[in-house]
Simulated scan of single mutants.
Amino acid sequence: MQKESFIFFKVNAPLKQLIFVVLLLFCTTIYVSPPIALVLGLIVANLFGHPFLELNHKATNYLLQFSVVGLGFGMNVHSAVSAGKEGFVFTIISIVSTLVLGTCLGKWFKTDKKTSHLISCGTAICGGSAIAAIAPIIKSNEKQTSIALGVIFILNSVALFLFPAVGHWLDLTQKEFGLWCAIAIHDTSSVVGAASKFGPEALQIATTVKLARALWIIPVALITAFIFKNKSGKIKIPYFIGLFVLAMIANTYLPKMEIVGALLVSIAKIGLTITLFLIGAGLNSTILKTVGLKPLLQGVLLWIFIATATLLAIIYLE
């Protein structure tokens, strides 16, 4: 979707591919955490270029889905249901308020209407997945979609480092942090990455609440189709969430799954680390320049709103 960006070191294709593959394999080791993998991806993209850029989006999408399903084998249904109930009210209020505020900010900044709506949906629900689902419905062009994705991915990258640091600084509990990052961080990859860095309980709560939140793509997509008067727009339903639920059920009710489940969770965590490496590798200088000030400012203000409001609600109302 994006053109190759300006790179600092011109190297031939085989060497570029070798550097990329070596770093990717390095991300499968215990020495690389999800945030570090993201940084490595950013470095390789902007120093040498991404040799497989045209495959990056699909690889990231499928690998993330596989990783999320794999994490389900380490979770318990009863705990997940409890976490989902607690996050339900926060989810509804945050989605509605973010979409309304996003629309107002878009008009204030005079941001392109479709770009503004994509940024708002990406912030309100589940980042890149929401944008991918909404873009065909509003018939956005490549530039509008790229700008929205760029805004979301930039802020996701910041969140991956910022949220765990703030969580420890405020001495949040595992439960509080899990709820906070599930609602306030856009993309599932960064939610899982930040929560896994904070702790196992935070990871379980964050993953469950975030995936339940992702289902809101469906009603938001239907409303979007009505607003943009598109009766033929197809809605992309995140079917992998069903597999995640099945994985949790198997882990909870099938005792023999314990050993296999632990292995699958370990593989899933490696998959998540590679996913974040690929996300970083897709954030080249071309995307950063394409975003522009107004859309980025809209995304930042929306993000500050949802992050601050959610954090205050969790601390004082829970």
Score class of each variant (00 low, 15 high):
F109P: 03
E258P: 00
G150V: 07
W108A: 14
F8S: 09
A37F: 01
T286V: 03
S67R: 08
A262H: 10
A83Y: 12
A212P: 02
P255H: 04
K229C: 09
K114F: 13
A250M: 13
F305T: 03
G199E: 06
E258S: 14
I30S: 15
G271S: 06
T252N: 02
I249E: 01
Q144Y: 12
N230A: 08
Y31K: 15
G280T: 02
G49L: 08
V220C: 09
S5R: 09
I227D: 00
I270S: 12
G193T: 05
L293T: 15
I279N: 07
A182W: 00
A83S: 14
L118S: 10
A247M: 11
F8Q: 11
G74K: 02
A195V: 09
N230D: 10
A37K: 11
G242R: 13
K143T: 13
N141G: 14
I274M: 10
A307W: 03
I205H: 03
I93L: 12
T188H: 01
F277W: 05
T145A: 14
S146P: 03
M75C: 11
F66G: 12
Q2P: 02
A165T: 15
V192Q: 03
H57T: 10
I30A: 15
F66A: 15
I147S: 02
F6L: 14
C181S: 09
N46E: 11
L211Q: 05
F240H: 06
G292K: 03
T123Q: 13
T275W: 01
L71T: 10
P51C: 10
T60D: 00
K139G: 02
A182M: 12
V89Y: 14
W108H: 10
K58L: 11
K85S: 09
Q144D: 05
A313G: 06
A83I: 03
G74W: 00
I237A: 06
T208Q: 07
V89K: 09
L296I: 06
L283Q: 06
A133M: 13
I249P: 03
A214R: 03
K197P: 00
V260K: 07
L24T: 12
F109V: 06
F20N: 03
L53C: 07
S140L: 06
G299P: 05
I218L: 14
L170H: 01
A221I: 13
Y62W: 11
F6K: 14
Y239P: 00
F9H: 09
N141L: 08
V192M: 13
P238H: 12
L38Y: 09
T310N: 07
A83R: 01
K256Y: 06
I36G: 04
I137V: 09
V300G: 04
I259F: 04
K231E: 15
L149C: 02
N284D: 15
T115Y: 11
V77K: 01
T28P: 01
L55F: 15
G261I: 01
I314C: 04
P164S: 10
K139T: 12
K85F: 14
E86F: 08
W180A: 06
K16M: 14
F66D: 07
L293C: 13
P136F: 07
L105E: 07
T310P: 04
C121Q: 13
K85M: 11
I125D: 01
G102Y: 02
H78L: 12
I138L: 11
L24N: 08
S140M: 03
V21M: 13
L105Q: 06
V77S: 04
G84F: 08
K229V: 10
A165P: 00
N141D: 15
F88D: 05
